[in-house]
């Protein structure tokens, strides 16, 4: 591999790594939001449970 080829690989590699890191961060955030949604659904079920049993 010539030095020119190494620089081209490095430039495109940097772009690829930054986009990959961005996708990983977004995926981690999505996982957190999924957990929070499940917690809130649980909370909503718990709140509605007494009223359902009374009614």
């Amino acid at each position: 591999m010539s030095s020119g080829e190494k620089y081209v690989a490095a430039a495109y590699g940097v772009v690829f790594l930054v986009v990959l890191a961005y996708v990983v961060i977004i995926a981690a955030k999505l996982a957190r939001l999924e957990r929070e949604t499940a917690e809130l659904a649980e909370l909503a079920r718990a709140r509605s449970a007494p009223s359902t049993s009374n009614g």
Partner: peptide, 13 residues
């Protein structure tokens, strides 16, 4: 940041 990084690599080359 990507502009600076790729530009810097191209400048070196």
């Amino acid at each position: 940041a990507l502009t600076l990084a790729t530009g810097s690599i191209w400048a070196k080359a």
